[in-house]
Nucleic acid binder design. Structure first.
Lengths: 175, 175
DNA sequence: TCCAACTCGTTCGGACCCGAACGATATTGT
DNA sequence: ACAATATCGTTCGGGTCCGAACGAGTTGGA
């Protein structure tokens, strides 16, 4: 369903396609794939920056720190590698994020009772309170940035993205 | 069109919704919005990490460095603030990225002929050659990660994402 | 038993990322 | 003409972010 874009947007996009095609003549680029990936990335960056500025900054939390805290609040204590996987960052990065959370008094590390290598991360009462306070505002902004989409469109969007996510899971599994 | 997910994925998602709803009882969270934003962010991270690992690492380029070089190759020389806007990073960040590009011999800074405040960034011949070499591989991976989507689905995805992008533009415009 | 192979989380180096503060330059109003 | 204001890119501090190297702890087989 083209033509549903605002005309400015549409014209700009078709011009961009001509420019890129001209710059890579003969390479046979898949423009639909290029556009899809580019839009996913632009949108993620814009949403993240917006919500970090409007919601998280006043609480001194980064996106990753808040997501970590959210996961701990909903699913309880988690071992580091599980939490990292859930949040979508590496264990090395998580060490820094949890250290920040600990310094702010939002979370706490505990040694695993039977396996000395493992660390269990847990939200403190203060951390859980912070999530309770922040999440409704956070979610309100999620609703605002997606208010241009119907419920069906939002489900379609999520559905397509999960398809890409599954492809990537399978890809990284093999490697 | 629910039920189009694999059953595992679907079950996992409905369980997650129950857990989150239970943790925030009474807050009346907009779950569709939460899911859409969460999926955009997860997908962007997964795609970026995958392509940085599989395509960019061997050339010593980050995602932002490559996107910057791509923009310069397609649209020619650009002033710093234009390039930053195009790439989706702040001018402060761009300074570092361009410095890296310059150190590697992929780009060059020039003073604006009539305005002493401005800097013009330009890809070198080596930089343009690098983009020519990398872009087809980069695009092949873009095609691979979206191969689970039909052409119509990819267009739908891009369309919905651009809707969100426009909402954010308007939001940040006012502020 | 005991040690090689494995699995954790941390540390480290290098790059990115933002926002605020800054210095240099340009523009505007009077 | 010239000061007040605005704009541009850089610098800085704090915080991610990754991958590789590492040390501590665990496990499985000879």
């Amino acid at each position: 369903m083209p033509g549903a874009f605002s005309s400015d947007d549409d014209a700009e996009m078709r011009q961009a396609e001509r420019d890129v095609t001209a710059a890579f003549a003969g390479s046979g680029l898949d423009f639909g794939a290029l556009l899809a990936v580019s839009n996913v990335f632009r949108t993620a960056t814009a949403v993240r920056n917006h919500i970090e500025r409007e919601v998280l900054r006043e609480h001194g939390l980064s996106w990753s720190a808040f997501v970590s805290l959210f996961v701990l609040k909903v699913w309880g204590a988690k071992e580091s590698h599980e939490l990292a996987k859930e949040v979508g960052i590496t264990v090395g990065t998580l060490t820094g994020v949890v250290s920040t959370l600990e310094r702010r008094g939002f979370a706490k590390r505990t040694s695993h009772p039977s396996d000395g290598r493992r660390q269990v991360v847990k939200a403190t009462a203060k951390g859980r309170r912070a999530v309770d306070e922040i999440m409704p505002v956070f979610n309100k902004h999620e609703a605002i940035v997606t208010e241009g989409l119907t419920d069906a469109a939002r489900e379609q969007l999520s559905h397509h993205l999960r398809t890409v996510l599954r492809t990537l899971d399978a890809l990284d599994q093999d490697a």
